[in-house]
Amino acid sequence: MFPASFGYFAARSLEEALELLTEYGEDAKLLAGGHSLIPAMKLRLATPRYLIDLGRVPGLSGVRIDGEALAIGALTAHADVASSAIIRQRLPGLADAASVIGDVQVRNRGTIGGSVAHADPAADLPVILTALGASFVLASPSGKRTVAAEDFFIDFYTTALAPNEVLTGIRVPLPPSGAGAAYAKLPHPASGYVVVSAGALIIRQPSGQCASARVALGGMAGRPLRAGATETALQGKALTPQVIAAAAAKAAEGSDPIEDAYASAEYKRQVAAVYARRAIESAAKRAGQKI
Protein backbone atom coordinates (compact mmCIF):
# COMPACT_ATOMS: atom_id res chain seq x y z
CA MET A 1 0.00 0.00 0.00
CA PHE A 2 1.55 3.24 -1.14
CA PRO A 3 0.08 6.71 -0.90
CA ALA A 4 -0.43 8.56 -4.16
CA SER A 5 2.28 11.12 -4.87
CA PHE A 6 2.09 14.52 -3.21
CA GLY A 7 4.18 17.59 -2.64
CA TYR A 8 5.71 17.96 0.79
CA PHE A 9 6.53 20.98 2.90
CA ALA A 10 8.16 20.81 6.32
CA ALA A 11 6.99 23.99 8.01
CA ARG A 12 9.52 25.45 10.42
CA SER A 13 7.18 27.88 12.10
CA LEU A 14 3.49 28.43 12.60
CA GLU A 15 3.67 31.48 10.38
CA GLU A 16 5.18 29.43 7.59
CA ALA A 17 2.54 26.74 8.01
CA LEU A 18 -0.19 29.37 7.78
CA GLU A 19 1.38 30.91 4.70
CA LEU A 20 1.54 27.54 2.99
CA LEU A 21 -2.02 26.79 3.99
CA THR A 22 -3.18 30.09 2.58
CA GLU A 23 -1.35 29.36 -0.65
CA TYR A 24 -2.53 25.78 -1.15
CA GLY A 25 -5.81 25.83 0.79
CA GLU A 26 -8.09 22.96 -0.05
CA ASP A 27 -5.37 21.11 -1.95
CA ALA A 28 -3.26 20.80 1.19
CA LYS A 29 -3.56 18.69 4.32
CA LEU A 30 -1.79 19.34 7.57
CA LEU A 31 0.34 16.49 8.87
CA ALA A 32 0.90 16.08 12.60
CA GLY A 33 1.64 12.54 13.83
CA GLY A 34 -0.04 11.24 10.71
CA HIS A 35 -1.87 8.42 12.44
CA SER A 36 -5.23 9.33 10.99
CA LEU A 37 -4.06 10.74 7.69
CA ILE A 38 -1.35 8.32 6.58
CA PRO A 39 -3.56 5.20 6.92
CA ALA A 40 -6.18 6.92 4.79
CA MET A 41 -3.54 7.94 2.25
CA LYS A 42 -2.16 4.39 2.07
CA LEU A 43 -5.59 3.09 1.15
CA ARG A 44 -5.90 6.09 -1.17
CA LEU A 45 -9.05 7.16 0.61
CA ALA A 46 -7.23 10.46 0.99
CA THR A 47 -5.14 11.83 -1.89
CA PRO A 48 -4.03 15.34 -0.90
CA ARG A 49 -1.89 17.15 -3.44
CA TYR A 50 0.25 18.74 -0.74
CA LEU A 51 1.18 17.89 2.80
CA ILE A 52 2.28 20.55 5.23
CA ASP A 53 4.19 18.83 7.99
CA LEU A 54 3.78 20.55 11.35
CA GLY A 55 6.17 18.12 13.02
CA ARG A 56 9.04 20.61 13.23
CA VAL A 57 7.01 23.64 14.25
CA PRO A 58 8.28 24.68 17.67
CA GLY A 59 6.00 25.44 20.59
CA LEU A 60 3.13 23.18 19.62
CA SER A 61 3.65 20.41 22.13
CA GLY A 62 3.61 20.02 25.87
CA VAL A 63 1.23 20.34 28.77
CA ARG A 64 1.12 23.29 31.14
CA ILE A 65 -1.23 25.07 33.48
CA ASP A 66 -2.35 28.42 32.12
CA GLY A 67 -4.56 30.22 34.61
CA GLU A 68 -7.71 28.25 35.23
CA ALA A 69 -7.07 25.89 32.37
CA LEU A 70 -4.73 23.20 31.26
CA ALA A 71 -3.11 24.09 27.95
CA ILE A 72 -2.10 21.16 25.77
CA GLY A 73 -0.13 21.73 22.60
CA ALA A 74 -1.71 20.23 19.49
CA LEU A 75 1.35 18.14 18.71
CA THR A 76 1.44 16.47 22.12
CA ALA A 77 1.51 12.71 21.62
CA HIS A 78 -1.25 10.61 23.19
CA ALA A 79 1.38 8.79 25.25
CA ASP A 80 2.51 12.11 26.72
CA VAL A 81 -1.05 13.10 27.54
CA ALA A 82 -1.61 9.71 29.17
CA SER A 83 1.56 9.90 31.25
CA SER A 84 1.61 13.63 32.04
CA ALA A 85 1.91 14.10 35.80
CA ILE A 86 -0.27 17.24 35.72
CA ILE A 87 -2.98 15.50 33.73
CA ARG A 88 -2.94 12.38 35.84
CA GLN A 89 -3.25 14.52 38.94
CA ARG A 90 -5.75 17.14 37.83
CA LEU A 91 -7.62 15.50 34.94
CA PRO A 92 -7.23 11.73 35.21
CA GLY A 93 -10.30 11.28 33.03
CA LEU A 94 -8.36 12.72 30.12
CA ALA A 95 -5.45 10.39 30.87
CA ASP A 96 -7.97 7.50 30.87
CA ALA A 97 -9.06 8.37 27.36
CA ALA A 98 -5.56 9.01 26.01
CA SER A 99 -4.36 5.67 27.36
CA VAL A 100 -6.98 3.62 25.51
CA ILE A 101 -6.40 5.10 22.06
CA GLY A 102 -5.17 2.54 19.52
CA ASP A 103 -2.13 0.83 20.94
CA VAL A 104 1.24 1.70 22.43
CA GLN A 105 2.83 2.49 19.09
CA VAL A 106 -0.10 4.61 17.94
CA ARG A 107 -0.06 6.56 21.21
CA ASN A 108 3.65 7.18 20.83
CA ARG A 109 3.15 8.85 17.49
CA GLY A 110 -0.45 10.05 17.23
CA THR A 111 -1.19 13.54 18.55
CA ILE A 112 -4.07 15.12 20.41
CA GLY A 113 -4.41 17.83 17.79
CA GLY A 114 -4.38 15.37 14.94
CA SER A 115 -7.09 13.26 16.53
CA VAL A 116 -9.28 16.25 17.36
CA ALA A 117 -8.93 17.83 13.92
CA HIS A 118 -9.67 14.53 12.18
CA ALA A 119 -12.95 14.32 14.15
CA ASP A 120 -13.51 10.62 13.69
CA PRO A 121 -16.82 9.82 15.40
CA ALA A 122 -15.19 6.64 16.74
CA ALA A 123 -12.26 8.48 18.34
CA ASP A 124 -11.78 8.79 22.08
CA LEU A 125 -10.51 12.29 22.71
CA PRO A 126 -13.41 14.28 21.23
CA VAL A 127 -15.73 12.52 23.70
CA ILE A 128 -13.80 13.21 26.87
CA LEU A 129 -12.90 16.73 25.75
CA THR A 130 -16.57 17.46 25.17
CA ALA A 131 -17.40 16.16 28.64
CA LEU A 132 -14.63 18.29 30.13
CA GLY A 133 -15.86 21.43 28.36
CA ALA A 134 -12.60 21.86 26.48
CA SER A 135 -12.05 24.48 23.82
CA PHE A 136 -9.76 24.59 20.83
CA VAL A 137 -7.36 27.30 19.81
CA LEU A 138 -7.36 27.91 16.07
CA ALA A 139 -4.77 30.09 14.40
CA SER A 140 -5.16 31.77 11.03
CA PRO A 141 -3.27 34.53 9.27
CA SER A 142 -5.75 36.99 10.78
CA GLY A 143 -5.16 35.85 14.35
CA LYS A 144 -6.43 33.31 16.85
CA ARG A 145 -9.86 32.26 17.97
CA THR A 146 -11.06 29.81 20.55
CA VAL A 147 -13.96 27.45 19.84
CA ALA A 148 -15.81 25.36 22.43
CA ALA A 149 -15.94 21.59 21.85
CA GLU A 150 -19.70 21.67 21.20
CA ASP A 151 -19.18 24.17 18.41
CA PHE A 152 -16.02 22.58 17.10
CA PHE A 153 -17.24 19.07 16.32
CA ILE A 154 -19.85 19.38 13.61
CA ASP A 155 -20.30 15.97 11.99
CA PHE A 156 -18.39 12.96 10.63
CA TYR A 157 -14.82 14.15 10.04
CA THR A 158 -16.08 17.71 10.00
CA THR A 159 -15.03 20.50 12.35
CA ALA A 160 -15.21 24.25 12.65
CA LEU A 161 -11.65 24.52 11.31
CA ALA A 162 -11.56 26.83 8.30
CA PRO A 163 -9.33 25.82 5.38
CA ASN A 164 -6.78 28.47 6.38
CA GLU A 165 -6.71 27.56 10.08
CA VAL A 166 -4.34 25.46 12.17
CA LEU A 167 -5.37 23.90 15.46
CA THR A 168 -2.55 24.90 17.80
CA GLY A 169 -3.75 23.85 21.21
CA ILE A 170 -6.47 22.55 23.46
CA ARG A 171 -7.59 24.28 26.63
CA VAL A 172 -9.28 22.20 29.30
CA PRO A 173 -10.79 24.05 32.27
CA LEU A 174 -9.32 22.76 35.52
CA PRO A 175 -12.17 21.31 37.50
CA PRO A 176 -12.82 22.73 40.96
CA SER A 177 -12.08 20.68 44.05
CA GLY A 178 -14.76 18.10 44.57
CA ALA A 179 -14.90 17.34 40.88
CA GLY A 180 -14.03 14.10 39.13
CA ALA A 181 -13.94 12.98 35.54
CA ALA A 182 -13.66 9.59 33.90
CA TYR A 183 -13.88 7.85 30.57
CA ALA A 184 -15.22 4.37 29.79
CA LYS A 185 -15.03 2.72 26.40
CA LEU A 186 -16.31 -0.33 24.62
CA PRO A 187 -13.68 -0.84 21.91
CA HIS A 188 -14.37 -2.52 18.61
CA PRO A 189 -12.72 -5.93 18.85
CA ALA A 190 -10.90 -5.45 15.54
CA SER A 191 -10.05 -1.79 15.14
CA GLY A 192 -9.90 -0.79 18.79
CA TYR A 193 -11.94 2.27 17.87
CA VAL A 194 -15.00 3.28 19.89
CA VAL A 195 -18.16 1.23 19.53
CA VAL A 196 -19.66 3.28 22.32
CA SER A 197 -17.89 5.35 24.93
CA ALA A 198 -18.79 7.78 27.65
CA GLY A 199 -16.95 10.64 29.29
CA ALA A 200 -18.25 12.18 32.48
CA LEU A 201 -17.39 15.21 34.59
CA ILE A 202 -19.10 15.29 37.96
CA ILE A 203 -18.87 18.19 40.37
CA ARG A 204 -19.87 16.99 43.79
CA GLN A 205 -20.93 19.00 46.77
CA PRO A 206 -19.36 18.04 50.08
CA SER A 207 -22.80 16.74 51.10
CA GLY A 208 -22.60 14.12 48.36
CA GLN A 209 -25.04 15.84 46.03
CA CYS A 210 -24.24 16.29 42.40
CA ALA A 211 -23.67 20.00 41.79
CA SER A 212 -23.33 19.54 38.07
CA ALA A 213 -22.73 16.82 35.54
CA ARG A 214 -21.51 16.77 31.98
CA VAL A 215 -21.78 13.45 30.18
CA ALA A 216 -20.74 12.94 26.56
CA LEU A 217 -21.15 9.84 24.42
CA GLY A 218 -19.01 8.58 21.56
CA GLY A 219 -19.89 6.26 18.72
CA MET A 220 -23.53 7.31 18.74
CA ALA A 221 -23.54 9.97 16.05
CA GLY A 222 -21.28 11.89 13.70
CA ARG A 223 -19.99 13.91 16.66
CA PRO A 224 -19.87 13.51 20.43
CA LEU A 225 -23.36 13.67 21.93
CA ARG A 226 -24.20 15.25 25.24
CA ALA A 227 -26.43 12.95 27.31
CA GLY A 228 -28.77 15.73 28.40
CA ALA A 229 -31.38 13.58 30.11
CA THR A 230 -28.69 11.87 32.14
CA GLU A 231 -27.14 15.16 33.17
CA THR A 232 -30.51 16.51 34.26
CA ALA A 233 -31.29 13.38 36.20
CA LEU A 234 -28.08 13.71 38.19
CA GLN A 235 -28.38 17.39 38.91
CA GLY A 236 -28.86 18.04 42.63
CA LYS A 237 -29.25 14.33 43.45
CA ALA A 238 -27.25 12.26 45.90
CA LEU A 239 -24.70 10.27 43.90
CA THR A 240 -25.88 6.84 44.97
CA PRO A 241 -25.49 3.81 42.70
CA GLN A 242 -29.27 3.79 42.23
CA VAL A 243 -29.41 7.43 41.18
CA ILE A 244 -26.45 6.98 38.86
CA ALA A 245 -27.90 3.84 37.28
CA ALA A 246 -31.28 5.49 36.75
CA ALA A 247 -29.67 8.57 35.23
CA ALA A 248 -27.34 6.52 33.02
CA ALA A 249 -30.28 4.49 31.76
CA LYS A 250 -31.45 7.67 30.00
CA ALA A 251 -28.08 8.17 28.28
CA ALA A 252 -29.24 7.25 24.81
CA GLU A 253 -32.55 9.10 25.03
CA GLY A 254 -33.27 10.92 21.85
CA SER A 255 -30.28 9.47 20.02
CA ASP A 256 -30.34 7.64 16.71
CA PRO A 257 -27.09 5.66 16.85
CA ILE A 258 -25.09 4.85 13.77
CA GLU A 259 -25.13 1.11 13.03
CA ASP A 260 -22.48 -1.11 11.53
CA ALA A 261 -21.89 -4.79 10.82
CA TYR A 262 -20.77 -5.26 14.41
CA ALA A 263 -23.29 -3.36 16.54
CA SER A 264 -26.95 -2.52 15.99
CA ALA A 265 -28.48 0.77 17.08
CA GLU A 266 -30.39 -1.07 19.76
CA TYR A 267 -27.21 -2.56 21.14
CA LYS A 268 -25.49 0.79 21.13
CA ARG A 269 -28.34 2.36 23.10
CA GLN A 270 -28.02 -0.43 25.65
CA VAL A 271 -24.27 -0.17 26.08
CA ALA A 272 -24.39 3.63 26.09
CA ALA A 273 -26.32 3.32 29.34
CA VAL A 274 -23.84 0.80 30.73
CA TYR A 275 -20.75 2.80 29.83
CA ALA A 276 -22.31 6.07 30.92
CA ARG A 277 -22.96 4.46 34.29
CA ARG A 278 -19.39 3.20 34.53
CA ALA A 279 -17.95 6.59 33.61
CA ILE A 280 -20.23 8.46 36.04
CA GLU A 281 -19.45 6.04 38.87
CA SER A 282 -15.70 6.42 38.33
CA ALA A 283 -16.03 10.18 38.05
CA ALA A 284 -18.12 10.34 41.23
CA LYS A 285 -15.55 8.25 43.06
CA ARG A 286 -12.80 10.57 41.92
CA ALA A 287 -14.94 13.45 43.15
CA GLY A 288 -14.85 11.84 46.57
CA GLN A 289 -18.07 9.86 46.54
CA LYS A 290 -17.93 6.46 48.19
CA ILE A 291 -19.78 3.93 46.08
Binding site: H188, P189, A190, S191, Y193, D260, A261, Y262
Partner: peptide, 22 residues
Protein backbone atom coordinates in the same frame (compact mmCIF):
# COMPACT_ATOMS: atom_id res chain seq x y z
CA UNK B 1 -15.09 -14.60 19.95
CA UNK B 2 -15.24 -12.55 16.82
CA UNK B 3 -13.62 -13.63 13.58
CA UNK B 4 -16.18 -13.69 10.81
CA UNK B 5 -15.83 -12.89 7.14
CA UNK B 6 -19.14 -11.26 6.31
CA UNK B 7 -20.63 -10.51 2.92
CA UNK B 8 -23.41 -7.95 2.58
CA UNK B 9 -26.78 -8.41 0.92
CA UNK B 10 -25.36 -7.56 -2.49
CA UNK B 11 -22.38 -9.83 -1.96
CA UNK B 12 -20.03 -7.01 -1.03
CA UNK B 13 -17.20 -7.70 1.42
CA UNK B 14 -17.96 -6.13 4.82
CA UNK B 15 -14.97 -7.35 6.78
CA UNK B 16 -12.09 -6.95 4.37
CA UNK B 17 -9.49 -5.55 6.74
CA UNK B 18 -8.11 -5.77 10.25
CA UNK B 19 -10.26 -2.72 11.01
CA UNK B 20 -13.33 -4.94 11.08
CA UNK B 21 -12.11 -8.55 11.13
CA UNK B 22 -11.18 -9.28 14.74
Amino acid sequence: LGEHMIFGDEGEVLTGSLMNYA
